[in-house]
Design a protein around this nucleic acid. Structure first.
Lengths: 247, 247
DNA sequence: CCTTGACATTAACGTTACGTCAGGGTTTAT
DNA sequence: ATAAACCCTGACGTAACGTTAATGTCAAGG
């Protein structure tokens, strides 16, 4: 039997947390003394550990109560939908990061890449040529669709998109030392994936194909090499890790 | 001049939000009529738009007030540090998604470990390294003895032993919902104890030490985590119950 | 002029998961 | 016996509004 303090140390929470869990009926003490003291037994310890596990997943206490309360509760379903919400959050946060970065870039203002440099590797004509080649390398319809989408953007929007992509690659280069499997790099891959939405929405397989293409297509490769000689290869590896972790 | 409703529609917020911003001094109406009505002018509209921009980045209203309050405030710095925090969140969420997915997989039970995966964490060389570390963690003579015994087995026998252990752990995972004190789990602990005989015959105290080691030794912990994120912790608890029931 | 409906106001509680006192008993050790 | 250390039960504070509730104001039509 443990007192609040003892159990709290054991589990790494504060006594207040235990009080709270008692209050909301999430974890009742095994026994309550005549003096009103709470006493917790082995089973309570295990139960608490379960609770803390779910809590770490950002599952609200109310849901945890449901999950652990009835034994016929659909735990799988709860986890599935929770995963959905986590995914949405991930996508959202990645967008936010992009926006913040764009804003920072914008504030820097003076130090912005000149338009020429930015468009250097992506002039309209070159874009056309790329497109033709890409049609043979990838699915023609997809490429055409992607091109249509790109052309529909305003000049300002185009620039913003290019700035965004350059930011992503810059961050990727900075994160390369962490390794392709690192959480940082994987987070950047997420951003990259979200960024692709400006052109089209690739499946996981296509995402990998695309990253491979960065290495195999000499034109693309050249543009990546300008930024960092290992970037293209690193991207391919990082995306591979990403894709495998998702399926 | 706009009234609350007009401005709220214009900006896509509720009147309550404007009330709130007035309350906390984030956005005061340009003028207040004798009837107490709030009236907002052009400048207020622009200001609100700025506020909503920052708000979308998940920046707390209090910080927004600071950012917009003094014109000498370090906006860049604020954005930079905010980006850091967003990055941390992104990393964290990705970890959570991983954990949830692992948990779902294990609940499905579909995760039939292939032989490779089974041996993955227990190749001959790695075994050696574990042994060295274990010697410092546990009793050296015991570890050496256990190693001798292991090496004496034929390859087929080794594989059979590993399969058996994986069966035990799989059963254990399946029985986790029953609780560490349940008869099912305690029966599995018995099987686990018997299984240990292939290596050595631990005393009750040593059995407990071993189970604890599964949690404290990062190498071991990693292998258990592969099977189920809570398995190591659960084993420790279950063995504790077992040992206490025996003495 | 009066009614009606749309709009305005302030006040105050609800939400989440506890942190942080405050005031007052209990246990343990000296 | 007395102090340290621990226990308890309130109860307010947090962030950013949502949501009634009770009530006052304005413009338009009968």
């Amino acid at each position: 039997m443990f007192t609040v303090k003892q159990l709290s140390k054991l589990a790494g929470v504060t006594p207040r947390t235990l009080h709270h869990y008692d209050e909301i009926g999430l974890l009742k003490p095994s026994r309550v003394g005549d003096n009103g003291y709470r006493y917790y037994g082995e089973d309570a310890v295990l139960c608490l550990q379960q609770i803390l596990f779910y809590r770490e997943l950002d599952i609200p206490l109310n849901d945890i109560k449901k999950i652990m309360g009835r034994r016929d509760y659909d735990v799988m379903g709860a986890l599935q939908s929770h995963k959905e919400s986590l995914n949405k959050q991930a996508v959202r946060i990645n967008r936010l990061i992009q926006t913040v970065e764009n804003t920072i870039e914008h504030l820097k203002g003076t130090k912005t890449m000149s338009d020429e440099k930015l468009f250097e590797g992506f002039s309209e004509e070159e874009q056309e040529k790329y497109a033709l080649e890409a049609e043979q390398r990838y699915d023609p319809e997809t490429v055409r669709e992607s091109n249509r989408k790109w052309k529909a953007y305003s000049a300002a929007k185009k620039k913003a998109i290019l700035v965004e992509s350059s930011t992503i690659y810059k961050d990727m280069i900075a994160a390369m030392p962490k390794g392709a499997k690192s959480a940082e790099v994987q987070a950047i891959v997420e951003r990259w994936r979200a960024h692709m939405d400006y052109f089209w929405t690739p499946s996981l397989e296509q995402l990998l194909e695309l990253a491979k293409g960065y290495n195999d297509d000499p034109k693309f490769k050249a543009n990546f090499d300008k930024m960092h000689p290992q970037l293209a290869a690193f991207m391919r590896d990082a995306v591979k890790v990403y894709v495998e972790s998702k399926k």
